[in-house]
Design a protein around this nucleic acid. Structure first.
Length: 200
DNA sequence: AATATGATGTAA
DNA sequence: TACATCATATTT
């Protein structure tokens, strides 16, 4: 594929609503290798490959919607395929995409993205990701669709299962037992990796 | 690995 | 008021 042709497809192809209408733990690994795309005010497209995700579900205690439904987490209970943006530790914005069905808190946290032509680790972590893409609460509840400013484009090629690492989630005090974090093994832009035993 | 930082939401 | 928080940066 020609160099300049690649970004053009980003606005033409995006993940359909049906992709998000499934449990978060099914969607999260399939988002690895997909591309987060933002249309800049100039019209230029900023994009990067999603290399780390985590799934959250109302039934487990680490989920923002586990305890109560409130104005701040309302989007997580809404229809799938929208961005849920929250403020973490009062400082950082974190970007999720809603999954599942309405009235059931379910979503995938986008933890790291790798941007072509930029230094590694500029978006290696959910707060850094939101900062690099200029995403704040004004993006909360917006549909992940190319007729908006922010959406997700599918992978160009299938991902080898050997490239996918499954691990437990980060930064939570409850629900650590669930292995609901996924990342791209070959990426240098993953926020934190588990130590892997070398093959015998 | 441990700690300082920071501000927002929620309960008391 | 008090408290916990889906982090990050800086230090041992």
């Amino acid at each position: 594929m020609a160099e300049g042709q690649y970004p053009a497809t980003l606005a033409e192809i995006s993940l359909p609503g049906s992709f998000f209408a499934r449990p978060a733990q099914a969607v999260a690994p399939e988002l690895i290798g997909c591309r987060l795309v933002k249309r800049q005010p100039s019209g230029a497209l900023l994009w990067g490959v999603i290399v780390e995700t985590e799934a959250y579900c109302q039934s487990e205690p680490a989920c923002h919607g586990h305890r109560r439904r409130s104005p701040s987490n309302e989007t997580l209970f809404g229809e799938p395929g929208r961005f849920y943006v929250y403020v973490s530790y009062g400082i950082h914005h974190c970007v999720n995409v809603t999954t599942g069905r309405s009235n059931w808190a379910n979503g995938v946290l986008l933890r790291a993205v790798e941007l072509p032509g930029e230094p590694y680790r500029v978006a290696a972590g959910p707060g850094l990701l939101a900062r690099r893409f200029g995403i704040d609460r004004s993006f909360d509840a917006t549909p992940a669709h190319p007729d908006q400013q922010l959406w997700i484009a599918p992978r160009l090629e299938p991902l080898s299962s050997a490239e996918l690492v499954q691990a437990s989630r980060i930064g939570i005090s409850q629900g650590q037992a669930l292995p609901w974090r996924w990342y791209l093994r070959s990426s240098r832009s993953v926020s934190r990796r588990v130590k892997e035993r070398p093959l015998p």
